[in-house]
């Protein structure tokens, strides 16, 4: 057999491996309901911070634990325990993406991404900031 065929076969095998491994190890965007249906499986949940609920952060006890409540895009509220220091300016966040899994009606998040208002494209003049 020609060497170029062997190389071709190896490349195809790698490509298949890439696709399979990516699909299996990548998470899925989901809501809290879907995450509750599959406890222990990692999901990405998009939503907003429940601003009426208190934010708990007690670094004296654990600097890597921050607890808050979040509404997912369907409006369902859930308690989130984040295994990270409290992100700076978290109160101001507009949209939050949490990555983690559901356990006993609490979402155990290993990471959080947040979008702050006007970080990149806000317009203050709109809010009547005229002198």
């Amino acid at each position: 057999m020609k060497k170029s065929y062997i190389i071709g076969i190896v490349l195809v095998a790698i490509a298949l491996g890439v696709v399979l491994s990516t699909v299996s190890s990548s998470g899925t965007y989901a809501t809290f309901s879907e995450a509750s249906a599959h406890p222990g499986k990692v999901f990405h949940v998009v939503g907003t911070l429940a601003k009426d609920k208190p934010l708990e952060y007690n670094p004296e006890i654990n600097a890597d634990l921050f607890v808050f409540h979040m509404h997912d895009n369907n409006g369902r509220e859930c308690k989130v325990m984040l295994n990270k220091a409290k992100p700076q300016d978290f109160e101001k966040s507009e949209q939050v993406v949490i990555i983690g899994k559901m356990k006993d009606n609490t979402f155990i998040a290993s990471d959080v991404l947040m979008k702050c208002p006007s970080k990149y494209n806000g317009n203050e003049i709109q809010r009547g900031q005229l002198r």
């Binding site: 004296e60 654990n62 600097a63 890597d64 634990l65 325990m81 295994n83 990270k84 155990i108």
Partner: peptide
């Protein structure tokens, strides 16, 4: 070394 269970390792930040 306050043990908070394996879900919350307290090992990235200090106060």
């Amino acid at each position: 070394q306050i043990d908070l269970g394996k879900d919350f390792p307290n090992n990235e930040n200090i106060m």
